Simulated scan of single mutants.
Amino acid sequence: MKKRSLALIVIFIVIAGLFSGCSQIDAAKVKLGLKNQDFEYIKEGRVKKVVIQNSRDRGYKFVVTNPVAISELYDILSDAKPVDSKTSLDSDYIFRLEEDSDKVHEFNYVVGLDKKDGGNLYSKDKYYIVTNRIDNDILNNFTDLRTPKDFNKLYYTFIKKCIDRYREDTKNNDKSIGININDDVDVAKYIFSYDLEDFRKSLPSNVKLLKDSNDSCDVKETVITTGYKAAGYADEYKYNGIEYDSIYKSIVTFYDNNTKDTKKYYMTARYKNGWNITISDKKSSDF
């Protein structure tokens, strides 16, 4: 009996020491700026619901109420590093942390941002650098978002290829072109600010992404996705006797603000052991 009591005491001391050590480590992290105490209200159990909404597609949102998931979010946010400034990029998601008292803590979040670019999670007066754990552990686990195959590769390549085709057809090499993707609602949830920034940097000086659909430019290029199928979503797609397992379709319209001329292109990509891409100014049966 004495041996058993002694063993229990030893176990208790070891556990107490471990908890004490964790507390000391956490305190040291706070002092070093590696950990923050701004999200303790989550740890205290006051947040019962987290609403995560896509910033570009307001109809796309999901709700997290699972206590384990909310606890995981606390672990991630408490490890976020407070910084003095936020990124200049537009947010990809809005996080709303709702307390029982109807108090809401709202943060903007930019997916996959590099640390040198400033805080990628921010409210009106607080900025944090959050690791991509929030993408891998939270967003990927709780969304049904399945990005169409090679979306970034196709989407931005299509836009540039269409500009080349338009300049070749119209000989308008000197006119500035403004790219409008703000109205492309079907793929808005697949577009992220960091990818947009990379695309923006790759554009020549007389081509720009329009912040607003009505921003000034000589020629406006409007991109509207009319159909896509992510790999694994449905049965294979047959065209001209060939079965393709992925397809992406888009209509791109160029409008010259000076001459009022309009030029339209129909872009299709079909995947079967590689992409078969076509750009045509003639509307096919696909559309």
Rank of each mutant, 00 (worst) to 15 (best):
G33Y: 13
G119S: 07
I242R: 11
S88G: 06
K208F: 09
L89F: 14
W275Y: 08
E98H: 04
I9P: 00
S285K: 13
D215C: 02
N214K: 15
K153G: 04
V187E: 05
D102G: 04
D137L: 12
K48W: 11
V50A: 14
I52T: 05
Y60F: 15
G232H: 06
S250T: 15
N173K: 08
K208A: 08
R200W: 07
K249G: 02
S250E: 14
E72F: 06
I76E: 03
K126E: 15
D84Q: 12
N152I: 02
D235R: 12
K29W: 11
G241M: 07
Y194V: 14
D117C: 04
D198Y: 14
D218Q: 08
K175R: 12
D261A: 13
T87D: 02
K272F: 11
K220F: 00
L209D: 03
S88Y: 13
F19K: 10
L209Y: 09
G21A: 14
N66C: 02
V10Y: 08
V223H: 04
A69S: 15
N180H: 04
N54I: 03
G33Q: 09
D169S: 07
K211F: 10
F19M: 11
Y194F: 10
V219R: 05
D218N: 15
I42C: 02
I134W: 10
D102L: 12
T143S: 14
S101R: 11
Y233F: 14
Y233V: 08
L196V: 08
G21W: 14
F12Q: 03
W275F: 07
Y228P: 00
